[in-house]
Amino acid sequence: MSNIAAHDTASHKDAIRMSAFIGSTAAPSADTATGRTRRPLIGITAGTRTLTDGAWAGYEATAVTTNYTTAIREAGGRPVILTPGEVWSADELADLDGIVITGGTDIDPARYGADALPTDFAADEARDAFEIELAQAAEENGIPVLGICRGLQIINVARGGTLIQHLADEDLAYPRSDQQLTEVPIEVDADSDVALALGTAPTVSAFHHQAIDALGRGLRVVARHASGVVHAVQSTSGAPVLAVQFHPETRADAAELFARFVGITSGSRAVAPSPKMATVQP
């Protein structure tokens, strides 16, 4: 995305901060002008895939698994697909109550000052630019964000953090989880939203070969594997951020994580956005 025009409103940020991220079950917000209600609008990032068979073989398709949209819908939100290359006006971005940054391929290591390795998966530069810019716009403008797997890594890199590029090359007693979804036990801080949703010792489903190394600004680690591999972070101030290295959208017993996120986003429309506009470049 070459351009995201984001609303800049202190009152909107204050409304977010006054709402505890430990959300209750989401309920549609009321439109006081019309008396109607609406579900929170949750933007879900997508990638692209090249179709390989049929009449449309060779054509590009917007791709995101329905697990994400189903999880948000069942949590009380209304999913809106966000695609790389879209240009959002201030008013359009302000319409979103929250953003989910989804899983996908590796981030270009140049984005966090590292060299490419043979173990890197091919980066999607357009999606990298789109999602990093989106994460930064959300941070600056008080939009709650949920990051999942690559989404956690995007948030960390967007905030100046770095990544371990290939866990199997590290001297860590960590399960190989780079070929398929793998059950991984994690330890969660009791004082965290992950613990309130999943408990302090859940088993999660992971599919990754990279993880957080240096932590980005404004984040704190709230869950790890016993090896030390980071599995969840939250924001320490400002707009709520919850990011996990695992895939809660694949497990029915992790649905509460989405319910809590959608719950807090329903409070993000308490104050109308300011007409001021800041343009964020990738």
Rank of each mutant, 00 (worst) to 15 (best):
T119C: 12
D120H: 14
D120A: 11
F121S: 15
A122C: 13
A122H: 15
A122E: 15
A122W: 14
D124K: 09
D124P: 00
E125Q: 15
A126Q: 12
A126I: 11
D128G: 05
D128V: 07
D128H: 01
A129C: 06
F130Y: 00
F130G: 00
F130I: 04
E131F: 09
I132L: 11
I132H: 01
E133H: 05
E133R: 08
L134T: 03
L134C: 03
L134H: 02
A135I: 01
Q136Y: 02
A137E: 01
E139C: 04
G142Q: 03
I143D: 00
I143R: 00
P144N: 12
L146G: 02
L146W: 10
I148V: 13
I148K: 02
L152I: 10
Q153P: 07
Q153S: 10
I155W: 01
I155G: 00
I155T: 00
I155S: 01
N156C: 05
V157A: 10
V157E: 08
A158H: 03
A158F: 03
R159T: 07
G160M: 03
G160L: 00
G161Y: 04
T162C: 10
T162Q: 08
T162M: 04
L163M: 14
L163F: 04
I164D: 02
I164F: 06
Q165E: 13
H166K: 05
H166Y: 02
H166N: 14
L167A: 11
L167K: 11
L167V: 11
L167D: 04
L167W: 09
A168R: 13
A168C: 10
A168G: 15
A168F: 05
D169W: 04
D169M: 11
D169Q: 08
E170N: 03
E170K: 06
D171E: 14
D171K: 09
D171L: 10
L172K: 05
L172F: 12
A173P: 01
A173G: 12
Y174F: 15
Y174H: 14
P175L: 13
P175S: 08
R176V: 10
S177F: 04
D178A: 07
D178V: 07
Q179E: 15
Q179Y: 09
Q180Y: 11
Q180E: 12
L181D: 04
T182L: 03
T182S: 11
T182V: 07
T182R: 05
V184Y: 02
V184L: 09
P185L: 12
I186W: 00
E187K: 05
D189E: 07
D191T: 10
D191E: 14
D193K: 06
D193C: 09
A195K: 13
A195W: 07
L196T: 12
L196F: 03
A197G: 08
G199I: 12
G199Y: 14
T200H: 07
T200Y: 06
A201H: 10
P202V: 09
P202T: 11
P202A: 12
T203E: 07
T203I: 13
T203R: 07
V204K: 04
V204R: 05
S205E: 15
S205C: 10
S205A: 15
A206Y: 05
A206G: 09
